[in-house]
Every structure is written in C-alpha cells, then in structure tokens.
C-alpha cells in the first residue's frame, strides 16, 4: 500500500472518530436530561403549583402558561405569516423591493431573541402599558416566530406544482382564489409540519419572555374561565412565567431545597415536548398527505 492510500485511511479513521465523539456528546446530553429528569416527573409534578421556599413544588401553572402563550402566539402569527408568505411566493416580482423585504425577514430571523424581548418590553410592556402579561408575551413571541414561520410556509407553497396554479387560473379564477383554495390546501402537509416545528421553538423560548410575560406565576383559579377576571387562567393581562423561564429563574435565584430536582424535571418535560413536536411534525404531515391523495 502506498503512502497516499495510507494517509487516506488514517484521515477517514479520524473522521469516524470525530463523528463518534459527536454522537457520544449528543447521546450524553439527551441521556442526561431524561435520566436525571424523568424520575422527578409525576402527575403531581405536572399539575401542582410551584413552591418558592419549600420542597415538593410542581410546574402546573408554568406548563399551562407555556401552552396558553404558544396557542395565542400561533393564532396571531399564523395569519400574518400566511399572508406574507403568499405574497412572497406568489406575487413578489424579482426586484429591489422583494429583495429588501427578504433581507428584512432574514435580519429578523437572525436577531438574538433577547433583543426581540427587549423590543417587546419597550413597545408592549412600557409603551402600550400592557405590563408583564400574557398579551405582551404573546405579541413578542409573534415577532420572534414570524420570520421562521413565514419562510417555512413559503417553502411549502413553492413546492406545490405550478400545474395546480395554472388549473385554477385556466378556469377563470383569480390568482388569490387559486392560492387560497387550491395552492394552500395542496401545501397543507408542509404548512402543518412547519407550524408544529415552529411551535417547538416558541415553546422553549425564554429570553424573549423574561421582560414581557414576566417572571412570576401567580396562583390561578382553574374554576374561573372568564378572561376578564385577573386570576382566571385565560386572563390576558396577568403575568405568566413559562416553563422555560421557570428553569432559568430558579437556577438564577431559586432557593427551594429541591431546586435540582425541579429543574431537571422541568428540563425533561421541555425536551420531551420538543421531541413530541418534532416527531408529530413528520407524522402528521405525512398522514395528511396520504389522506389527501388516497381513495377516500
């Protein structure tokens, strides 16, 4: 065997080692989260309120806040992202205006989330006087979510065959009707996958929420679902610490004795949720696609 061949073999062996090491690190990460965290997760942990000074607190309120904020943020951002992506994929011409807007969206998507959070703080908390509240948090998460969701939906729309658009236009329908009633339904599997993936990202976001949704989770009265009462779970004007913020908060200044258990349990729940989001994004997208093209 000559020198270059030997060199090649050694280099490739090295690459295999690096890959193995990376897999090891990643496996350790995921293993650590679940092995240390899952034993602390119980139904009681998931449903009971947090305790500040004593052991045995749960994450019930935080979990509810995370889900509620996620739903609100998605309800606000989905129509905007859909509109923007429709314009970008169907109407935008290849000119300076379009490229300026694309640059703006890129800038927004690469902005550190803490900067987005600070903007939300300035605009919603201070300027609009919403205070640290669900609504401030949801609007800030919307800003955080918009660029990626827009890009995901745009990609799904672009993957729909042009034949479909031609079909709609050929029947004398407007471009808009064709998009809304033909292209968007045809792109639905991709759009739903995109929405779920973005949900995972929103669900785990903390930096954008610290100064918008706040860092406290007052006890909620789960018997009162009138959004106009301040201790109702649905009240949009109450402060709402989410699960991700909770992990940060107790690790920065928590003093409860079971701090590590609560943190690791919360982290496991968070990662488990992301995992479910990831898997269901694939699964649901595929199912819908099959259903749309099948014989029933």
């Amino acid at each position: 065997m000559n020198r270059t061949q030997k060199q090649s073999q050694i280099a490739i062996l090295l690459l295999r080692l690096i890959a193995a090491l990376v897999v090891l690190i990643l496996a350790f990460l995921i293993g650590y989260i679940f092995i240390t965290g899952l034993p602390n997760v119980s139904w009681k942990f998931l449903t009971s309120p947090a305790k500040a000074f004593t052991a045995g607190g749960g994450i019930g309120v935080q979990l509810f806040n995370s889900i509620y904020l996620l739903i609100l943020a998605m309800i606000i951002s989905l129509p905007i992202a859909l509109g923007a992506s429709i314009y970008l994929s169907e109407y935008a011409k290849d000119n300076w205006f379009t490229s300026m807007i694309r640059t703006a969206i890129e800038i927004l998507s690469s902005l550190p989330s803490v900067v987005v959070g600070l903007f939300g703080f300035l605009l919603f908390v201070v300027q609009f006087n919403y205070g640290f509240s669900i609504i401030s948090g949801a609007l800030t998460l919307t800003i955080f979510n918009l660029p990626l969701l827009t890009r995901n939906i745009e990609e799904s729309l672009a993957s729909v065959s042009d034949d479909q658009r031609q079909g709609g236009l050929g029947l004398g329908l407007s471009k808009y009707e064709t998009i809304v009633h033909i292209v968007v339904p045809a792109a639905l599997p991709g759009i739903i996958s995109g929405v779920i993936l973005c949900s995972g990202r929103v669900f785990g976001e903390a930096a954008a929420l610290i100064y918008t949704a706040g860092q406290s989770a007052p006890a909620l009265n789960f018997g009162d679902w009138n959004p106009f009462n301040i201790d109702s779970p649905l009240s949009p004007l109450r402060p709402a610490e989410t699960l991700a913020v909770h992990i940060w908060k107790i690790n920065s200044e928590g003093i409860m004795p079971d701090l590590t258990q609560v943190s690791s349990g919360s982290a496991a729940v968070l990662v488990l949720a992301i995992l479910i989001f990831n898997l269901s994004a694939r699964y649901i997208g595929r199912k819908i696609f099959e259903k749309m093209t099948s014989m029933n």
Binding site: Q164, Q166, G167
Partner: peptide, 11 residues
C-alpha cells in the same frame, strides 16, 4: 377554457 399537458386535478 383551457386543459393542460399534464392532468392537474386539484386535491
């Protein structure tokens, strides 16, 4: 009206 090269039924 128009009919196209590839059949393009809607979903």
């Amino acid at each position: 009206g128009m009919v196209f090269q590839r059949p393009n039924p809607f979903a």
